[in-house]
């Protein structure tokens, strides 16, 4: 099978955790697709499988059953080394708590993915991305000197430097006040217009409803 149309194509995605003799289903046969330029939100109560699904499509965790394509690459059977390559080339992560390195400046934080990819020759790109996310003047500031909205924008800039095709955002506005939330969502819209596929896992139904498509999860299954 080939996946020419979707940024991500998953079929029968299942993740089982073993606790003693008991099997716990975090995901049960979920079918999931997202196209370039699309924003998809994933909602549901805590423990419904939102983060597990994000981890699966982000190649951070391995499937127990099912098939998953990132672009044209079938990733469900790949080894860790190859998964790192897929992550590096295709996926950018944004987390609720930003996870910026406190001793590095905004610019240095965003530079890290290039350091790991040994592509520091592309560091001029970081400045462009900072302009794009509206932080052009704050390159040399430490995270502690910035507010939550700005820190999340640095985290988004960091997710963008490797020029990914997909952005996975886990509760990206969970710690932000409404004005910052708007700015972050506006930024996601802009990125989607540029052709990025964006998946947002959130409890915030207001934010989720503004996505192109909303997927509701319950007990590891899609319910809408």
């Amino acid at each position: 099978m080939e996946n020419n149309k979707h940024a991500i194509y998953g079929e029968g995605l299942t993740r089982i955790f073993q606790r003693g003799s008991e099997k716990l289903y975090a995901l049960r046969g979920v079918d999931f697709q997202i196209s370039p330029g699309e924003i998809v939100s994933i909602v549901g109560r805590s423990g419904c499988g939102k983060t597990t699904l994000l981890n699966m499509v982000g190649c951070l965790d391995t499937l127990s059953e099912g098939t998953l394509y990132i672009g044209n690459t079938e990733v469900s059977r790949l080894k860790e080394k190859d998964l790192i390559k897929v992550r590096r080339e295709n996926i950018g992560f944004v987390f609720q708590l930003f996870y910026l390195i406190p001793t590095l400046t905004a610019y240095e934080n965003a530079l890290l993915p290039l350091l790991f990819a040994r592509r520091l020759d592309k560091k001029e790109k970081v400045k462009e991305i900072f302009q794009k996310v509206g932080l052009g003047e704050r390159l040399n500031m430490l995270p502690s000197e910035l507010d939550g909205g700005d820190m999340q924008r640095i985290a988004i800039a960091r997710a963008l430097v490797n020029e990914p095709k997909i952005i996975l955002a886990d509760e990206p506005t969970g710690r932000l006040e409404s004005k910052s939330k708007e700015k972050i969502f506006g930024l996601f819209k802009k990125l989607a217009e540029d052709g990025l596929a964006i998946i947002i896992a959130t409890h915030d139904l207001g934010l989720a409803s503004r996505a192109d498509r909303m997927i509701r999860l319950k007990d590891g299954m899609v319910v809408n």
């Binding site: 982000g58 790192i84 992550r87 590096r88 987390f95 996870y99 993915p113 790991f116 990819a117």
Partner: peptide
């Protein structure tokens, strides 16, 4: 620990 996890998500390998 969390930060190392995030670095791995950003594309850092074990060797990094």
């Amino acid at each position: 620990t969390k930060e190392i996890g995030v670095m791995r998500a950003m594309g850092a390998g074990r060797e990094h």
